[in-house]
């Protein structure tokens, strides 16, 4: 499968995506606006509570092409963060007490400077999270990487959209489940996911279809039981993430005739407490070219940090960024539905 951009698909254009989720038809047009909802609960303009997480998207290249991918990542994507831009990130981090550096992609492991960068960040004493798709670690080139990450105390957060093969492979491609099981077992073997090892292994659940995630605790319990019983696999935590209506997931919603209902579902499930806890309030997202965004979703919609805050890592200014106004649109309803959703799972 090719990325939308390689197919020259109209939905690879962020402006088209925003137009679809705002104006697709009369029904979609008539739905409540995110800004109005924030205003009703006194959260407009949406302001950060203070940056605690520095999330770097080190490139859109990926060994996979999952159907729901909000990045539109794939082997055909060539956008990769250069060493120079990674150095700007280190420079920015040095002068701050931001504790967590979160590496995402694409497959972040595919960035040629990955090891060097992890080494440098850990010298700064920061906590590192790597968002792994698991399957990349099943290749010869990366087989030593888990031990390298363990040596640096890296927390691994990896995608496993469901505990069964059928649903996992539908979303992520045939064979993904078996490879993921193999890699999880290997991670367990070096200590990841084991109590007291200090090596944190988290799984990410996201719905395989046009429905919302259920209760995070209940899903965690089910995953723990099933993965232990069926595969002898252990892990620490499970994060439920709602699919936001952008990019390839938006394409799925349109092709399956689910767009209106899904948008309506998100909006009806708007939860003011979840809105207070949206991740853009404590996160800054850095794009492969050094541009700054409020979150990885805004990055994919090319909605840069705005309202007088710097929008490039070269111009990093923590104070200004901590006082910025967050840029929102209709996709944000994905973060505020039900128990809320963030890169760390439910927010309430």
């Amino acid at each position: 499968m090719k990325s939308l951009i390689a197919q020259s698909h109209s939905l690879s254009d962020p402006a088209v995506q925003l137009d679809v989720i705002n104006n697709h038809n009369e029904k979609v047009k008539s739905l409540d606006k995110f800004e109005n909802k924030l205003e009703e609960i006194g959260l407009l303009p949406l302001k950060p509570t203070g940056i605690e997480i520095f999330q770097i998207n080190v490139g859109y290249m990926c060994n996979m092409t999952c159907k729901h991918c909000h990045v539109d990542a794939g082997p055909d994507r060539k956008e990769i963060m250069t060493k120079e831009t990674l150095q700007y990130c280190l420079d920015a981090l040095k002068g701050t007490d931001i504790e967590t550096v979160d590496l995402t992609g694409g497959a972040p492991e595919m960035n040629p400077h990955f090891r060097w960068f992890v080494d440098e960040v850990s010298k700064l004493g920061k906590h590192i999270i790597v968002r792994s798709n698991l399957t990349i670690l099943d290749t010869r080139k990366f087989e030593n990487l888990p031990q390298f990450m363990a040596d640096h105390g890296v927390e691994i957060t990896c995608s496993l959209p469901f505990y069964s093969k059928r649903r996992t492979d539908i979303q992520r491609g045939e064979g993904t489940y078996d490879k993921s099981m193999k890699v999880l077992k290997m991670l367990n073997k070096i200590g990841y996911g084991k109590e007291d090892s200090g090596l944190q292994l988290n799984l990410v659940y996201n719905p395989v279809g046009a429905f919302l995630p259920g209760d995070q605790e209940s899903l965690k319990k089910q995953y723990k039981e099933r993965l232990w019983k069926d595969q002898d696999i252990v892990f620490n935590d499970l994060f439920t993430i709602t699919n936001l209506p952008i990019s390839r997931y938006l394409n799925f919603l349109m092709q399956s005739g689910n767009l209106e209902e899904y948008m309506e579902k998100l909006i009806n499930a708007f939860n003011p407490s979840a809105a207070k806890g949206v991740m853009c309030r404590n996160t800054i997202s850095i794009g492969w070219d050094g541009s700054l965004y409020d979150c990885d979703f805004n990055q994919m919609l090319q909605m840069k940090t705005n309202h007088g805050a710097p929008d490039h890592i070269k111009d990093w200014n923590l104070e200004k960024l901590n006082n910025r106004e967050i840029v929102t649109d209709q996709h944000c309803f994905g973060c505020t539905a039900g128990a809320g959703s963030s890169c760390g799972g439910a927010v309430t």
Binding site: S164, R167, P207, G209, P213, G214, S218
Partner: peptide, 8 residues
């Protein structure tokens, strides 16, 4: 589906 039941 939301509550995590499988097709089976």
């Amino acid at each position: 589906l939301e509550k995590g039941c499988s097709e089976e």
